[in-house]
Amino acid sequence: MLSQPVFGDRSLTTAFYQAVIARFDDSLSLSTQALLRECTLGFAPCPEGVKTFFIIAPSLDVAEQLIGKIDSILDRVAELMAGVGQVALCVVPPGSEAEQPVDRQDFEKVPADSLACKFFSIICADAATDR
């Protein structure tokens, strides 16, 4: 009889992504780290199936400051997160319906105007040199 694994696939994946997120800002500037601490970070595939690293900023001001630092963020994602094809920098306007908790079944019902995202593609240096 085979023993059951200590972690299921889902809990192992969750633990892995939590560890990656915890290490994400280690080599970034202190000002970038401070901005990222105000944000919610996570992973999800986009509708086309591309694995996406989401940075959800609490305000437009924080999002704009992060756009100014996007090159270092993209470099860090490429270095640490193999398989992630893009970064989505999103902002949830204050008082919007997206600020309220959403049940997974109702996720598609969140109004499109309650969340704004800008997507940045990850360009892998190895892929560019292989061409």
Rank of each mutant, 00 (worst) to 15 (best):
Q4E: 10
P5E: 10
V6I: 10
V6S: 06
F7R: 04
G8C: 10
R10D: 09
L12W: 12
T13D: 01
T14P: 00
A15R: 08
A15D: 13
Y17Q: 09
A19C: 06
V20Y: 00
I21Q: 02
S27V: 08
L28M: 11
S31I: 02
T32L: 03
Q33E: 11
A34K: 07
R37H: 09
R37A: 12
R37G: 02
R37K: 14
T40D: 05
P45W: 08
E48C: 07
G49C: 05
G49R: 05
V50N: 01
K51P: 09
F54I: 00
I55S: 02
I55Q: 06
I55T: 03
I56E: 08
P58E: 07
P58R: 08
P58C: 06
S59Q: 02
L60D: 11
V62I: 13
V62P: 00
E64Q: 12
L66I: 04
I67Q: 14
I67G: 01
G68K: 11
I70N: 01
D71K: 15
D75E: 12
D75Y: 13
R76K: 13
V77C: 07
V77N: 03
A78S: 15
A78L: 01
E79I: 02
E79D: 14
A82E: 12
V84W: 06
G85C: 13
G85P: 10
Q86M: 13
A88C: 11
L89I: 05
P94L: 10
P94V: 09
P94C: 09
P94G: 09
S96T: 10
S96H: 03
E97D: 13
Q100V: 15
V102D: 03
V102T: 15
R104P: 15
R104K: 12
Q105C: 02
F107S: 14
E108W: 08
E108A: 15
K109A: 09
P111C: 11
A112M: 05
D113A: 14
S114L: 04
S114G: 13
S114F: 08
S114R: 10
S114H: 07
L115G: 01
L115F: 11
K118F: 11
F120N: 04
S121I: 02
S121C: 04
S121W: 01
S121R: 10
I123H: 09
I123W: 02
C124Y: 15
A125C: 11
D126Q: 15
A127C: 14
T129Q: 06
T129E: 01
D130C: 09
D130W: 06
R131F: 10
